[in-house]
Write a protein that binds this DNA or RNA. Structure first.
Lengths: 349, 349
DNA sequence: GTTAGCACTCCACTCTAGTGAGTGCTGAAC
DNA sequence: GTTCAGCACTCACTAGAGTGGAGTGCTAAC
């Protein structure tokens, strides 16, 4: 086939003027949410040609899949591919405005107390900064080392296994015994559990602590071990905090779209794995259908890992319409993610 | 004033036929969300008159404020007052359908694990049952007795105060010392804290445990006491779980309404105090503007206290449009509230 | 390759009936 | 005095026609 292979255009750079035009269209559309006509583009930097020339370039950009027309005599709107090119090649690094930076500083200066509460508030902060819905996946406690194991009696046949981890998280699991158990046996069993598990991360506990069958374990200890192994397995060890879901209602004018997006947000597991999947594919932005979750086809997602002590363990996500402010969202996610990581690293030291 | 005093109609019963007509209008409007015309009412039970008579009754009901007309030549829709009369005098007790009852049984048979997770899932259950947004305010831990106090070292200058309460909740507070503190001093301080607070509810701790100044307390214990007194004060001790917020998007077709309602739902404190206020006024349903939160003017709220060991300590709330299915919502809230209360009572025993 | 000019397209808006569901009123029947 | 058939009336909703304007694609000239 000697003719031009269209599929190769995907990777080809656009010439400078086409890029400038695409940039202008995306930028203006993000601001106005209205299709952009050739006339609105001629004043943009890097485009010093007439509207007629812009039109022919826009037609080319449409042929190549970067722009689309809602109808024949309308302006152009970016396609997912257009946004993708914008994010990858055109958008500057972006930065928070001074007000936003101040807000972040304030927040982390005054953040204190329980980790869960801090993550919850972080999602609110991100939503405020970006006008997007923010998702914060708490650092997994899987790799945190056990600092303390305790059995607290809750009535004659019940106890609560309380495990304190090095990152400040406290996990618990209620235990039911077949027989009455007094405090002495409880503390005895707790001591044995501690001996086996102190200093190990949760993952290791499951692997290394003998499940049962050990001749030295009594019934109480055996039940405790089982509870210990079950710790954190219930919710996958990760908890999701969603902030600013009302922003989705402001972003779309079709109430049906809002409903389906909210429905997704209610499914914690779906969201957590979605964010993980995007990170795993090496992306920091997933646009439109790139992430494969159909109800979010008109949304874009910005993800940012949160590193605690150099290990990527938490995740920050920003959900908005595909015409979201990518530079701002990326900047906010980066800044907040970094600060949050630092903060959590301090706490786990 | 010898003429009829209109304000007295508020408390006056409606005559049987007017009540039947109001009942029919409310019921039909809840189902269809369309203004109801006189023709649609003639077949309703208790209304064996012609549409002309129905019309004149409807006009009277409108004069008395039970019904309203969107415009002159449209059918009638209920006013807040109309819904109020319906809820107070017309709606039957209501009951869950067998499927719903089965769902509730299933849920509580399989509910286990941490209390927070259970409350979260309860909100989802309620949303499923009623098609409303569900709010569950966890039982306050204020009155729960302290079962265990522990100080876990987290590095040389930091520790975590971990308090286990009789209801299975675990509260924590991180502590920073001005000096290095070894394990021995920690456990010593923990023992003193325990001596002073074991068996007391959190409220009593704040009242009775000497704050500082006691000659026998060392620096570590003093800091511990301060942390102990601060426990639970941070979030008012109450945590809100919201489930099914996407249902609000299905209930309204104005995206602006959805946005403002979601914004309210994001403010935990507002929601918690709102539910409490409604309960305190002795209502179990707040319709339209009755609760005074302006953005929720087109919503109704069903509240139900959750009793743990005979004490009303938690709250269940259902949020829907004013044309929600009140009998169903009330039934669901009652059933789930009762079962939840039983469950929590067991756990705290 | 660029551009002014031009014909064309099609949405958004307005205006105008026409339709129909629903009303209020009236006068007669019970 | 309550009920009700009949009737004129109201008004949202819909469809169709006309208009303005934003925007396009094409073409011929530079």
């Amino acid at each position: 086939m000697p003719t031009t292979d269209d599929s190769r255009i995907d990777t080809a750079e656009l010439d400078a003027r086409k890029a400038a035009i695409l940039n202008a269209v995306v930028t203006e559309y993000i601001g106005s949410a209205q299709p952009v006509g050739s006339q609105h583009v001629v004043d943009a930097p890097g485009v010093s040609v007439s509207s007629a020339t812009v039109r022919s370039d826009m037609a080319a950009l449409e042929r190549d899949g970067f722009l689309a027309q809602p109808h024949t005599s309308a302006g152009r709107i970016p396609t997912d591919k257009g946004y993708r090119f914008f994010v990858d090649h055109l958008a500057g690094p972006g930065s928070l405005d001074p007000g936003g930076r101040h807000q972040v500083r304030q927040f982390f200066d005054h953040a204190h107390g329980e980790i869960e509460q801090m993550l919850e508030r972080t999602s609110g902060l991100l939503a405020d900064l970006t006008d997007c819905t923010a998702m914060v996946v708490g650092p997994s406690h899987e790799s945190a080392v056990i600092r303390s194991v305790q059995l607290v009696g809750m009535g004659s046949r019940q106890a609560l296994l309380v495990v304190v981890l090095a990152d400040g998280a406290v996990q618990k699991q209620s235990i039911e015994f077949g027989e009455e158990v007094d405090e002495a046996r409880l503390s005895d069993a707790a001591a044995r559990l501690a001996a086996h598990s102190l200093g190990l991360p949760l993952t290791q506990v499951r692997a290394k602590v003998p499940s049962t069958g050990d001749r030295s374990t009594d019934a109480v200890t055996a039940v405790g071990v089982r509870a210990l192994r079950a710790l954190g397995a219930a919710d996958g060890g990760e908890h999701l905090f969603v902030g600013g879901s009302s922003r989705m209602a402001a972003a779309f004018d079709a109430v049906e779209t809002v409903r389906s997006v909210l429905t997704i947000l209610e499914q914690q597991l779906v969201v957590v794995t979605l964010l993980r999947d995007i990170l795993d594919t090496g992306l920091s932005v997933a646009i439109g259908t790139e992430h494969g979750v159909e109800p979010l086809a008109s949304c874009a997602i910005v993800v940012m890992p949160v590193s605690v002590d150099g290990v990527e363990t938490g995740t920050i996500g920003l959900l908005g319409p595909t015409r979201m402010n990518y530079p701002l969202a990326l900047a906010a996610a980066r800044v907040v993610g970094d600060r949050l990581g630092e903060r959590l690293s301090e706490a786990s030291r």
